[in-house]
Write a protein that binds this DNA or RNA. Structure first.
Length: 798
DNA sequence: CGCACCACAATTTTT
DNA sequence: TTGTGGTGCG
């Protein structure tokens, strides 16, 4: 290499590096290493997404320049000088084969992460960003499959089964096979099938092996698996795992397809690599092809999805699979305080089989982690509410608080406490909006219109709203369909040809015509119009209106909300095909709806919290059998996964971390008590402050009750607090701004009667934001502090 | 055929 | 405690 060349390359690299002044040296390395396999071990809060964004930026702007010895054609002293001077022309001379945006594929696990990636890319790159494929494994697969579905025996409009669809299909099959759900638990069978698919095992192979082995249970599961696949194929449907399984098949067996996608994506980035399963590994391997420009980002310590087939091996052995791989560790944490980070490090250190990473930070030690032992789960929730109110009083936002728990069921007591105090909250997870029965009904109509061969969904709606086609008739029709190996719709359309069906034949014919009309309608109209047509022609909403119960009003709202989501989809994606919308629905999760702008406390499982961060985090239920969970105790591997989950949970916290445990707790109506979680013991004492029991069990006695200034604050959107009994529909998914709560007309000194607490007098009012904190002295229950807006709904002046 | 009630079961995490 | 599924009655 000539002296000029060396000088040129050095100058070029230095120039490009200078374009990323905000990155630390490790981050910079990760951004500049564009060529060949790259493993980025990114600790929690180490600026992983930032690296990803800048990496894409570097690729699009400078191509391979930062990682290549190639000189641009005609490189001369003038160019070198330009780069050394870093003048406005430098960009042009520094670039080497800039990558076109559509040549970059960035895979994430959640739509939310993909969305965030897109947004941040958009902010940095402008319009170009739109052409980068930033999506989840599943949506990437859908897009690939739509193109070549016919090669696999599907139509381009194949539908996607979500988990509950799959589950009911399994139940049907169990019934047909006359297997007892007690021994073949549908959920478990589905899990087994999912794991088999995750390791690329097809039914025939599994069945053969099971038969050779002779284990009855395994044989039955294999048979169920085979039948399950068969019926999915008949319905022109795929489940979540199929999306990957078939895409891998497609890439594996069709060289032209494989080459097409390999050429399409010379640069591949995969986020959360520790959560990939073997099938996803194969997918990325096939795409990376010979070029091997594959960059994976992950953290073995944050692998928490082993239960659904993810294998840590993928990340642990990446270096073996790709011998030329470079590995970069990002260990500087920009998120948490010293105490929090030390606690996380201390906990995770107890795991074996790690790549080994120690997070460090330049931040201060910060506040001590607080551990509080509550009397029971209500007390626990109460304490959480109290601390949050105190923080709010000091000027913190509700949205800066998150409560994390091991399992969804734990949210109940919290919801109750937050509701009573009028603290706005939002639950992530639990029942998805699209899982509500009425919503599924409407979507099932749309699915059937899209694919009438979809027996499962057809069965769901054939008599909804009631149109006189009883279950008996449907089952008979299903049997006939089965015998003839055709779809249910086929039989229903010609019901009058079968004696067994003569009674309901006229109604079946009517129904078949309805579907046919709707299908014809859908061919020339967009999905939102189809929605209207379905509502109109089926009388779905009318049927609900006639019942006219309180619950049905909510259901009607949910049904209407479906239209909003259709319109949103069309607007955001620019796609107005029915199958596009339906696929989007199936791949949608609650987290996607998570809008961090709304000022509300976040409640979610530790699992869903991965990738997020909050200034103030509360971990509740820190007791043995809750966390670590019952089934992990005594299972070393499971225990390690629980510990990683704990690590994830702790590292969500930026400024303060509260750990809570309850002395006793109701579990299936029975009280039980367990000692504090081992994970708490694993945190060195110097990072923890243990609150004496009862020290602030109730709001009033708290040293946190230091309220200060009322603070100027723009509008809050408050949740509609549902009925005080708590028998509410979860306010989780439907994103709607609730009608403004009328300005409460209570004043200091008023005598009031509260639904839950009885009579009392307002002794204190402190304006806070556009709400007020009021203190009421109740006759029977003593003093209570409440948020006025929420309390006003349960209170009258007397 | 549709609805209501009762008994029973099951409790982890989710793309 | 909640939800689901089955049964029995109108």
């Amino acid at each position: 290499m000539t002296d000029f060349e060396t000088r040129f390359l050095e100058a070029r690299k230095a120039y490009i590096a200078s374009r990323f002044p905000n990155l630390n040296s490790m981050q910079l390395q990760a951004v500049l290493a564009t060529e060949g396999p790259l493993l980025i071990l990114a600790g929690a809060g180490s600026g992983k997404t930032t690296v990803l964004i800048h990496r894409v930026f570097n690729l699009l702007k400078y191509g391979r320049a930062s990682d290549s010895d190639l000189l641009p054609t005609g490189a001369d002293e003038a160019m070198l000088q330009e780069i050394l001077d870093r003048g406005p022309m430098a960009d042009e001379y520094a670039a080497l084969y800039p990558v076109a945006p559509w040549h970059v594929l960035a895979i994430t696990f959640t739509n939310k992460a993909a969305g965030e990636l897109k947004n941040r890319l958009g902010a940095m790159l402008g319009e170009q960003a739109a052409d980068v494929w930033a999506c989840t494994f599943h949506s990437a697969c859908v897009r690939m499959l739509r193109r070549d579905a016919d090669r696999l025996g599907f139509t381009a409009d194949f539908t996607i089964y979500d988990t509950s669809d799959s589950l009911s299909l399994i139940k049907h099959i169990l019934k047909d096979f006359e297997l007892d759900e007690k021994y073949y638990i549908p959920r478990a069978v589905l899990n087994e099938i999912s794991h088999l698919k995750g390791e690329s095992h097809w039914p025939d192979e599994v069945l053969a092996e099971a038969r050779a082995g002779g284990d009855r249970h395994r044989i039955k599961v294999a048979e169920i698996y085979k039948e399950y696949m068969h019926r999915l194929t008949l319905s022109d449907s795929m489940d979540f795992d199929d999306l990957l399984l078939y895409t891998v098949t497609l890439l594996d067996e069709h060289e032209d397809v494989r080459l097409y996608w390999q050429n399409r994506f010379p640069y591949i980035l995969i986020d959360e690599y520790q959560d990939t399963n073997p099938l996803q590994y194969r997918f990325s391997e096939l795409l990376a092809g010979g070029r091997k420009n594959i960059c994976v980002v992950g953290d073995d310590d944050q692998s928490i999805y082993k239960f659904r087939g993810a294998t840590i091996e993928n990340i642990l052995t990446f270096e073996n699979h790709y011998p030329s791989c470079r590995t970069i560790r990002l260990e500087q944490n920009y998120r948490s305080t010293g105490h929090i980070l030390e606690a996380a490090n201390a906990v995770i250190r107890n795991n074996t089989s790690r790549k080994g990473k120690e997070l460090w930070t330049q931040h201060e030690e910060g506040e001590l982690i607080e551990l509080t032992i509550a009397d029971n789960e209500h007390d626990e929730a109460q304490i959480v509410a109290s601390v949050m109110m105190a923080n709010y009083g000091r000027g913190e936002n509700w949205k800066d608080h998150a409560v994390l728990y091991r399992k969804n069921a734990q949210s109940n007591s919290l919801e109750y406490a937050l509701k009573r105090h009028g603290i706005p909250y939002r639950i992530v997870g639990g029942t998805r909006f699209f899982d509500r029965a009425e919503v599924k009904d409407i979507l099932s109509y749309m699915c059937v219109v899209s694919a009438p061969t979809d027996d499962l969904r057809l069965e769901r709606i054939i008599n909804v709203p009631a149109r006189g086609i009883g279950n008996k008739s449907v089952q008979t029709a299903l049997e006939i369909a089965h015998d003839q190996n055709v779809s249910l719709f086929e039989i229903v359309s010609h019901a009058d040809q079968y004696e067994e069906l003569t009674r309901s034949a006229p109604r079946m014919r009517l129904f078949a015509n309805l579907i046919r009309d709707l299908k014809a309608f859908a061919e020339v109209n967009p999905p939102d119009a189809l929605f209207d047509e379905i509502i109109e022609k089926t009388g779905y909403i009318r049927a609900l209106e006639e019942k006219n119960t309180a619950e049905d009003t909510g259901r009607i709202e949910n049904v209407r909300e479906v239209k909003t989501s259709i319109l949103t989809y069309i607007k955001e994606s620019g796609d107005s095909t029915l199958s596009g919308f339906l696929a989007n629905v199936a791949l949608y999760t609650d987290l996607d709806n998570y809008d961090s702008e709304q000022d509300a406390v976040t409640l979610m499982t530790m699992h869903s919290s991965k990738g997020l961060e909050f200034p103030h985090v509360f971990l509740i239920g820190m007791e043995e059998t809750m966390f670590p969970s019952m089934q992990a105790i005594g299972e070393p591997e499971e225990m390690e996964e629980e510990r990683r989950l704990c690590y994830v949970a702790i590292t969500r916290a930026m400024k303060t971390l509260h750990l809570l445990a309850a002395r006793q707790r109701m579990i299936f109506g029975r009280t039980s008590s367990n000692r504090v979680s081992r994970f708490v013991d694993e945190i060195p004492e110097e990072h923890i402050k243990k609150n004496a029991p009862k020290s602030y069990g109730y709001w009033e006695s708290s040293r946190f009750s230091a309220y200060s200034e009322p603070r100027p604050k723009s509008s809050h959107s408050f949740q509609t607090a549902a009925s005080p009994t708590g028998s509410s529909i979860r306010p989780a998914a439907a994103k709607k701004d609730v009608s403004p709560v009328p300005v409460p007309t209570f004043a200091l000194g008023d005598n009031v009667k509260h639904k839950a607490f009885g009579e009392g007098v307002i002794v204190k009012m402190t304006p806070m934001g556009n709400d007020s904190l009021i203190e009421i002295s109740f006759q029977s229950v003593g003093n209570k502090k409440l948020m006025l807006r929420a309390a006003a709904q349960y209170m009258v002046k007397i």
